[in-house]
Structure formats: structure tokens, C-alpha cells
Design a protein around this nucleic acid. Structure first.
Lengths: 335, 335
DNA sequence: CTGTTAGCGCATTCAG
DNA sequence: CTGAATGCGCTAACAG
């Protein structure tokens, strides 16, 4: 592969001049610009990104860590960061953590080794301490979808508690009192916070329900099916269900369907995330909107600002979820 | 940020020794290993990836170009490539083309500038010529979801014609004769090939239909809605529909629902791709499976083999789509 | 087993 | 406006 030297030779100038025209330096004569341009295309010259990064101490790269790019939630996140990067003439480097601490650590280290200017990190596997360590190392690192008090101004998170509270209250407002909760078995704050929100809404409306109204499963379709089946087995007579996320709601829906239980006529159900599938499920799923795109955009800008040591005052770090009304919730006639 | 020199100084050894322990060279004494390891962690040393790449002329990176990571189809593709990369101790660099030629070109150039060993390219915007040019430049480049005769052994593609043929024939086998086609307006081979497949199946079964049975739209939910509405307007009395992809099918479904037309009782519909939403749509969508994961896996391995100049005989470059039976197709009672 | 040294490809002084 | 020279951080001979 041709190097800058080859180009210089062919163009009959020095490497310095070639470098100048590559970087559009104003001090380059038209004649040399032409000679160099011609030589470059003749040789099929490609500036070596590694060499440039090495000498300029700057990669123009934003690093992003997600759990799994193939999940559309993260796809949306990545795209939002990419947009911001693009806007700033930068590009992104993506790391996948696959929900495993070890992988997350490796991915973050990869991003750091590649000298990303800024980092947008979605980590659920690493401890607060470890993350704080990384944050100390990289000024431009921000956490998304996680809140660590010590890193408060570098966290962009969602009020999960509030989201579950809203969903539950929405059901209550539709006359439901026997409201089950399909929760996630994952040991992350989101899971517990959403349960807290559910319980708080119940409490605030003087509804008291036994623990058996909470059923756990993996946060995906299968987990939702299993949880719903278990709920049915207990014959709790629940008329409303608050699911951990849309996938679990979808799973629950299919079990309900198999059992000839009509939604929303007999049972109402709320999802969480307002992901892609929410609008395709039948009935169209009423859910809680997780504004991941806006959050990712904000995170990327914050990371950039932090990296360039601007004073980035991050005010609204904790985003508020909102209700999305569709067709899976109706007034109950039972009492 | 600490460099290898700093580590050497602190550990009281030479940079060569530090390099040896970093790269786990066998010729390094236990004592120096310990000293260096200690110094590294004390300084929080991070090997500079750019410097390594520069000197070793190797980035251990597979470049991937997709249209849009946030689309789960591409998410699946990327994940498959990432798995292969991981398996080989490599990682991936992702470029987004967003369906625009200019962006695709920039992204590929970025990947080349970053000296990716291998490239898995999904391009619909660039001309054959341009792609051939890039291929000449990069030995380890393979195209996915596209077939260019001159690059035959470096293309991993799907037989779109066959897919549409199967879908159409499937409907015919269910007694349908008035079969409409919801096609894509995008000017890519997939679009025309699928129409060809549809027409061929009709022809082979002695069914002749006017052109008005083909309606075009953007290949997404909205496009599907529009196309379906147009089809209805023409009162063609079609009992079967072959859609360009699952999203268009979903859009069509919602229009059908709005018009109180039951699927599959009154109208049967086939999707294409078997993407995430296919199993969530109501009724669950019968569709054509696009084995993108397997194809991407194959593409990544081929790219790797090509890059290391192994003789990679790529036999089954053109993959065959298969039918996925779900609930959106039924026998027709109309004749 | 270890240290010295020469580049990898490029941007950037500093003289001219 | 241009060229020669220096070094970014690291690996890989090479000589000890």
C-alpha cells in the first residue's frame, strides 16, 4: 500500500507538502496541490489512520459500549450516537458486552486502547467501583442507562421507578385493582426499581396484594410466557398486568391468547420501552416510552463536551418516561 | 497517558522487555514479568492500539458496512460477524451507509484507511464498477446481499427470485389465483428480482394477471399501508398478497384490518425476511426466511480467509430462502 | 534472558 | 511557499 513517501516521490515534492495538501493547509501552492492530488489518485493512496492517530494524538472516534447491537434498543442508541459523531466529523467504534462483565471490561479496554476521545457506556455487568475507575481514567466517559452517585453529572439515566409507577397507576385509573407484575430476573437496578415503582403505586392507592402477584422471568418473550403461565396457574384473578418490558408483555400476550383470555376485554397489560415490536403486537401494546434516542443523543454530546473539557453542566440527567396509549388496556368491569 | 517508556522506567527494565511481557513472549523472566506487571498497573498503562497497528501492520479488525445498524436485520448481520471476529481474536469496525452512495463510499474509505484486514460490505448504493475497484484494492473484501459477476467468488447473496417464487407458489398451492404483489420502489436488484420471481410463479402456473396487481411503495410499514390502500381502491378482488418484506406486510395488514378484511380468512398474505416482527404481528406472519445470520457468518469467514490469502473456495455463495409457515395464509374458497 | 536501535506512516516544527 | 528533520508509541531484529 502506497505511503506518503511514495506520493511525494511521484509528485516530485516533499512529504511535508503532501501532508499539507492532504490536510488542506492554506500554505500549499496550486501547482503542488495538483501534482500531489494527481499522484495520490494514481497510486490509490490511502492515509493510514493509525499513523495519523499516533502523531496527532487524536482519533476522532467516539467509543460506544452496548450489550448487543442486534437488539433494536441498542441499535437505536448506537444510531443516535453515530449521528452526533457524524455531525462533529467523527465516527464511532462499537463494543459489545453481551451482558457479561468480562466482555464489558474487555470492550471498554479496547475502546480506551484505541484512544477514543469520548465514551458512551452502557454497562450492567460491571460494579460501580470499576466503572468509577474507568471514568477517572477517561474524562470524556459518560454512562447511559445507569446512575452512580459519585458520577452523577456523567450519568444519563431513566427514572425506572417512575415508569413502573405510571404504568401501574394507569391500570388503576382504569379500574383495576388486582394487578400482577411480570418482573425480570436480571440483577440490575432497572429490575428492582420497576418493582419498587409498581409497589409504590399500589400502596399510594391503598391496594394491598400478596407477593404472589409478582412473577419473575428472563426479560424476553420466553420469560414473559413462563411468567404469565405461572401467574395463570395461581388463579389470582388478576385483571391487569405490568410487564418489565415489551418482549415480556408480548410473551404474556401469547399465553393469554392460548388460554382464550381476551386482551384488553378480560385482562389489560402494559409493556415498557415502546420498542419496535410494541406497535406490531396484537393488540397494539400500551406501554411506557423509553426515550433512548434522545438520551443517547444527550449522552454523546455530553461525552464530547467532557472530553474537550468544556464546562458541561448536565442538568436533566434523569429522564422521565411517558405513557403510550394503545390498545392493550381497557376499563375493567370486575370489582 | 503512560507510555511503554514510562513503564520501562518504573519497572527498571528496557522497553523491549516491557513489550515482551505485554505480548506474552516466552523469553521473559518471571522476575521481569512481575516487575513490569506491577509497573503497568501502577501507572494504569494502556497499550496504544494505533502505535501497535502502525508497527505491526495489522489491526486485527474486520470492517463491516451496513445500511443502518439500528435496523434489526443489520443488527443480526453485525452480530454474526462480531461472533466470528471474536472467535479469531479480532474485533469489528462498523460503518453505516444509510442507503446513500456518498455515505457508503465514505464509510468504506474509513474502513480501508483504518487498515481493516477484512471487509464485509453490504452496499446497495454504489455501482458495480466502484465496488470492483474497492475489491481490487482490498483482498479480504466480500460483498453480502449482492451479486456481481466479476466478483462472483466474493459475493454472498440470497436468491431473491427463488424466494418470491416460493412465496407466490405457496399461495397458489392454497388455491389462490388472484395474487397481488406489494413491491418496493427502491432501485436495487432485490426489488426487481422479487418481482421476477412472483411473475415467474404465476406464469408457471398459467395464471395471467394485469399489471395493476403490482403496487409499489417504500419498503417499510408506511409503504405497505399505502400500497395496500391502492390495491383495495382498484377493487381487484385479490385473495392473496406477496409483500416485498415483513414491514410492508405489516403495513398491509393494518390497512386490511381497518377495512374489516380478515386475514387469513378473506385474504392471505406472505412476508419476506422473517425478521423480528414477523412472529409478533397478528396474525403471525407466514413469510420467507432470509438466513442473514448464516450468510453473515459465512461472509465473515470468507473475508478472513481471503485476507490471509488462503485458497477460499466459496461454493454455496447463493443462499436459498425457505418458507416459514405461520398464520397469515389459508386456503381460499373463492375461485 | 535482556537492552539498543531502527523504523512503521504521518504531522509539524524550524530553517530556508 | 517548501523541504529536512524529529518524534508519536510500539515491535522486532540484532547483538550481547
Amino acid at each position: 500500500m502506497a505511503t506518503i513517501k511514495d506520493v511525494a516521490k511521484v509528485a516530485g515534492v516533499s512529504v511535508a507538502t503532501v501532508s499539507r495538501v492532504i490536510n488542506k493547509s492554506p500554505k500549499a501552492s496550486d501547482s503542488s496541490i495538483e501534482a500531489v492530488t494527481h499522484a495520490m489518485s494514481k497510486l490509490g493512496y490511502r492515509p493510514n489512520a493509525a499513523a495519523r492517530a499516533l502523531v496527532s494524538q487524536n482519533t476522532n472516534t467516539i467509543g460506544v459500549l452496548v450489550s448487543d447491537v442486534s437488539d433494536s434498543f441498542f441499535g437505536t442508541l448506537v444510531k443516535a450516537v453515530d449521528s452526533v459523531a457524524h455531525e462533529h466529523g467523527k465516527h464511532i467504534l462499537i463494543g459489545n458486552g453481551y451482558h457479561r462483565a468480562e466482555e464489558e471490561r474487555n470492550a471498554i479496554e479496547l475502546l480506551i486502547n484505541n484512544r477514543c476521545d469520548s465514551l458512551v457506556i452502557h454497562s450492567k455487568g460491571l460494579s460501580d467501583e470499576e466503572l468509577i475507575g474507568f471514568a477517572k481514567e477517561v474524562k470524556g466517559m459518560v454512562l447511559i442507562n445507569r446512575y452512580i452517585p459519585e458520577l452523577a453529572e456523567r450519568c444519563i439515566s431513566l427514572d425506572n421507578y417512575q415508569g413502573a409507577y405510571l404504568a401501574t397507576e394507569y391500570l388503576i385509573q382504569h379500574g383495576h385493582t388486582k394487578i400482577a407484575c411480570i418482573a425480570s430476573t436480571h440483577k440490575i437496578e432497572d429490575a428492582s426499581q420497576r418493582i419498587e415503582g409498581y409497589l409504590a403505586a399500589l400502596r399510594d392507592h391503598d391496594i394491598s396484594l400478596p407477593n404472589s402477584y409478582i412473577e419473575y422471568g428472563e426479560p424476553n418473550g420466553d420469560g414473559g410466557e413462563l411468567a404469565m403461565a405461572n401467574l395463570l396457574t395461581k388463579s389470582l384473578d388478576a385483571t391487569g398486568i405490568v410487564a418489565y418490558n415489551d418482549y415480556m408483555a408480548a410473551g404474556a400476550l401469547s399465553v393469554l391468547d392460548e388460554n382464550n383470555i381476551k386482551v384488553p376485554e378480560q385482562v389489560s397489560i402494559m409493556g415498557f420501552d415502546d420498542g419496535l415490536i410494541a406497535r406490531y403486537i396484537y393488540p397494539r401494546l400500551s406501554t411506557v416510552r423509553y426515550p433512548i434516542q434522545i438520551m443517547a443523543d444527550k449522552a454523546a454530546r455530553l461525552a464530547l463536551a467532557l472530553a474537550s473539557s468544556e464546562h458541561a453542566d448536565n442538568e436533566s440527567a434523569i429522564f422521565a418516561p411517558t405513557l403510550v396509549h394503545r390498545n392493550s388496556v381497557a376499563h375493567t368491569n370486575k370489582r
